[in-house]
Design a protein around this nucleic acid. Structure first.
Lengths: 334, 334
DNA sequence: GTGAAAGCGCTAACAG
DNA sequence: CTGTTAGCGCTTTCAC
């Protein structure tokens, strides 16, 4: 591994000059700069990142903390961040809190500590990765952006407008003539779930439709709970199916769709189906889902933008909060 | 950030002793060790990884290079590696060669260099991330494991038995009475594609069925090309559909399934459908795919095991090659 | 068993 | 504009 010294010797300058050429091009005369640059090329010199890092305190790495690396929603988020980062020499470390063998909470906490210990330059946390320990973010020392609803405003955050979107979807379903709509919510300990649920039910009330608790099922946001919800529905309302069902996440919707198929219930003929979340990977699901949401890629891009402003120091005020309106996509299922 | 010096002072020992307690517990007397450990706890001391890294040359990071972070196949691979690593304090950096704005080849090369520059401790490369430039692995200085078919045996590798599996699938389809089988292959520049194609066609020949070039379509392994393949098939063989179709990857199969649905062709009633690849995420696809393959999680686990042997020095012989037999899963589509 | 001292490769005052 | 110098925090001979 060729070091800065050798470059200096070959170029016939001091080691400082080489360092300056690398870090502050303008402080070096043109002649010397060219000599140094030639030497660098000739030797194929590349600065040692570890030494730089030790010296400067920067690591050129940011962490992305997500709850489930196998969910296309989160991978699209990750990809959009990596894409935006692709010519910046900043690496991303993925912390997946859903690694089996431990509660997400513990993992989340542990990762949060690692980020600080390792001196990473920044952190993006996707909501569900950190539920229940959001207060830990209150005194995090690393620039951080939270993707999702963060009531304590500990750090910058960006979120979908869960209340308005769910409200909009319910309104759409009602406009299509649905009055009895089953509702598969997310876990009640999630702010996000509660917002979506509130928006959805508010729309019902707004239209003079009462809330029927017997049509509500609390899911986990994950695929398997879509199956469970449908089995529950077919069991409890076998001879009296509602005309529509709304899933608070597309993963559950996908599971539910599969379960309906398995049980011989045809969507949308026998029951209309709608869900939250929009992302690319859904394009090959049949029948096509009618959904509402914000593309994770956009959340990722904007989260990164916020983060970079923090890291670059171009913003250092109080935590910002961005709420994005969702898009309704009408397809085959409702 | 508390440093080793402060610990030494509080414990009343030299800084060397503290370091020894951390790295070579046995070289320190019990009394001192306890004193030092108490001081460490009291101060909440945590070794600075960057300094350690600079000094030792280790980074405690490995890279995972994959062609597409949005493909469940690769994310399941990633997750299995991260899970296996979850209590080792080794981080993974994900290099995704499919970042838009550049050929995968260039990205692959660039990442390969970064791995070496950054002094990462190890590398796992998933085949498609490095097609056409596998020779670059010949003189890589970092312990590396290749997941896929690596003809030049540059490094340790682990792969599915593509020939045998495709052969087995074809044999299965033939046993079910199919004689005219459309075949959507992977790209011809991939070894893997060629192996699967060879195995498949060999089975046809073995059973006295000729190869009908007009039933073969070269795809890309990706979703969109499944759509294209089906459109091609319906156009070229509209009134004379083969009785079955085999996709060399499940992503293409999924796209194909969607396209069939869109065109009103019912699988498997109108045409049977089979594909390569097996992974968890397929569980919610309907109708359920009949497939053959090796779970990516297993490939990941075993790749990591090979890598750890290299990194730990417990193996340092010539490149090893592991070929895993695939599993046939018969479901609804064929 | 313990400690002093020499760096790992680099950056950034500070002088010149 | 350029060079000298002092570390960043840690590990590891090498003496004691």
């Amino acid at each position: 591994m060729v070091k800065i010294q050798e470059v200096a010797k070959l170029a016939g300058v001091s080691l400082t000059t080489v360092s300056h050429v690398i870090n502050h091009r303008d402080r070096v005369s043109l002649v010397l700069r060219e000599r140094v640059e030639r030497a660098i090329d000739e030797l194929g010199y590349v600065p040692n990142r570890r030494a730089q890092s030790l010296r400067t305190g920067k690591t050129n790495m940011i962490a992305l903390m997500i709850p489930d690396i196998c969910s296309p929603y989160y991978t699209e988020l990750v990809r959009s961040v990596q894409t935006a980062l692709s010519d910046t020499d900043v690496d991303t470390i993925i912390y997946n809190t859903d690694v089996p063998g431990g509660h997400s909470e513990d993992h989340g906490l542990e990762y949060l500590r690692q980020v600080q210990r390792k001196g990473l330059d920044g952190l993006i946390v996707a909501d569900a990765a950190l539920h229940r320990i959001q207060h830990e973010l209150l005194d995090i020392k690393v620039p951080t952006v939270f993707v999702g609803n963060l009531p304590n405003h500990a750090v910058d955050s960006i979120e979908q407008d869960g209340f308005a979107s769910a409200h909009q979807m319910a309104t759409y379903l009602i406009a299509k003539g649905h009055r009895r709509i089953a509702h598969v919510t997310g876990p009640s300990f999630f702010n996000m779930s509660m917002l979506r649920q509130a928006g959805f039910e508010r729309a019902l009330v707004d239209h003079g439709i009462g809330i029927d608790d017997s049509l509500r099922y609390e899911g986990s946001f994950l695929g398997p709970s879509g199956h469970e919800a449908v089995r529950w529905l077919l069991k409890t309302h076998a001879d009296n199916l509602p005309s529509a069902i709304f899933f608070a996440s597309s993963r559950m919707a996908q599971g539910g769709l599969a379960e309906f198929a398995d049980q011989g219930v045809v969507v949308p003929r026998d029951i209309a189906l709608a869900s939250y979340d929009i992302y690319e990977e859904m394009r090959d699901i049949r029948p096509r889902l009618t959904t509402i949401g914000v593309e994770p890629a956009e959340l990722g891009r904007r989260a990164l933008a916020l983060l970079q402003e923090r890291m670059g120091g171009s913003y250092s005020g109080p935590p910002r909060r961005i709420v994005l309106p969702a898009r309704l996509e009408i397809h085959e299922t409702a």
